[in-house]
Amino acid sequence: MTNTTRPKIVVLGGGTGMPVLLRGLKDYPIDLSTIVTVADDGGSTGQLREMIETPAPGDIRNVIASLANVDQELYELFQHRFNVSNGLSGHSLGNIVLIAMSSITGNFYEAVKEVSVMFNVKGNIYPIVNEAVTLHAEMEDGTIVSGESKIPMKNKKIKRVFLTPDHLTPMPNVVEAILDADLVVISPGSLYTSILPNLIIKDVVDALNQTTAKTVYVCNIMTQPGETNDFSAADHVKAIYNHIGRNSIDSIIVHNQPIAKNLLIEYEKQNASPVTYNLSSLKQLGLEVYEEDIIDHNHPMIRHNTEKLAKIIFQMASDKIKKY
């Protein structure tokens, strides 16, 4: 790895947690690469996948939007979701743009690159693979559930997740980015349906084990019904270890302050609760623990604070390159 004054940060993830993290990071002097899941099959993405055999565009669209440097009108246009009584209803314009560009270029990754240029995106955006994939979950009772959006709906304890087709090969840029990074960040998000689909591909596992980068997991603030019911921070890490091996993570960022009761009421109705942690349990898992107040106290929902997280992550990456 070449020592530079700009830390090389790679963020893996998907769903709604990843864009929150990226919005803060894009303003720092870093070389940023994002690796994004394409296993989503719900909503507009699911409908488009049924019509056209394509990697899921939804999570990619949100990452492009979070890293875009365009005026507000163009941002809102890209993220616009149609609410009409015809075939466009529910579709995001950004998803349609990505599929259209994929048709023009003949390649989904080339489409992502072209749209990223159009929106003056900070950094590189890599779909984890360049083909349509399906996520499956084996439950503790032995049943198999197929489809990212269907897995949480079963509300069963998940034993493992896996992808088809078998023996998937990630984009070459994905492996190169991980191997060349100073810091690899596993973003917050749905553990089994947004985070693990990026991590379980063999070449990615190998790259995570071989890289000299420090790997940090940004733990979720709240549990997710149907995926991580009653999970502690250690349970989140153990689920990752069970899929890709122990010691694949070096450190973890956890929220360490009480959450306002008025914010918790709606979550309690959905059987979601704050993710608790035990410092000694996390250290026994081989982790360096960063305990911080990482909630956005100005948001009406419980969300990570993008500025606080970005500052912590940038400092971690800067400290890493100082050692070289």
Rank of each mutant, 00 (worst) to 15 (best):
D71N: 15
K113V: 15
P57L: 10
F162Q: 03
V84C: 11
G106M: 11
L32D: 07
T37C: 11
I158S: 03
G43C: 09
N83M: 13
N130R: 09
I52H: 12
K159F: 02
I128T: 13
P57H: 09
A177S: 15
L163V: 08
T54M: 03
E131S: 14
V63D: 00
M139R: 01
G42P: 06
D31L: 13
G123P: 05
D71Q: 13
Q47P: 00
Y109K: 04
K156E: 07
R61Y: 04
H80C: 06
M118C: 14
H167E: 14
I151L: 03
N95S: 11
S149Y: 08
E140R: 07
S116E: 04
S66A: 15
V97L: 15
M139S: 01
S146G: 01
S44R: 13
V112R: 08
G43V: 12
V121Q: 04
V38Y: 13
T105G: 00
I104D: 04
Q79N: 15
L67R: 01
A137E: 00
D71A: 04
S149A: 15
V38K: 12
P127A: 13
G42S: 11
Y109P: 00
S149M: 01
T45F: 10
E140P: 00
E76H: 10
A100Y: 09
D141Y: 10
N124C: 10
M118Y: 10
R49Q: 02
V161D: 04
K157D: 01
E140I: 15
A132G: 05
Q79G: 00
G42Y: 06
G87P: 00
K159P: 00
A68M: 03
G123A: 10
E148P: 03
T164C: 02
E176D: 14
D40Y: 11
E73M: 11
R160L: 00
K150F: 06
I125Q: 08
V112Y: 10
K159W: 01
R49M: 02
G142T: 03
D40E: 06
S44W: 12
S44C: 11
R49S: 00
M139Y: 12
G90R: 12
I64S: 05
H91V: 11
T34P: 03
G58H: 12
E140F: 06
N107Y: 12
G90D: 07
I178T: 08
D31N: 15
P152K: 09
V97W: 02
L74H: 01
E53S: 13
L74D: 02
I178V: 11
E76Y: 05
N120M: 02
L163N: 08
A177N: 03
L32S: 11
F108N: 07
M153D: 09
E53N: 14
P57N: 06
G58V: 11
L88V: 07
Y109A: 12
F78L: 13
V117E: 14
I158Q: 01
F162P: 00
F108K: 10
F108H: 09
E110G: 10
G42I: 13
K156I: 06
R160W: 01
G147S: 05
M118S: 15
L168F: 09
R61N: 04
H167G: 02
A68G: 04
P172G: 08
R49K: 15
S92R: 12
V175A: 03
L74C: 00
G90F: 12
S149G: 02
Q47H: 14
I52S: 06
V133I: 15
P165A: 10
I35D: 06
V38L: 11
V63I: 14
E110T: 04
E148S: 05
K159V: 01
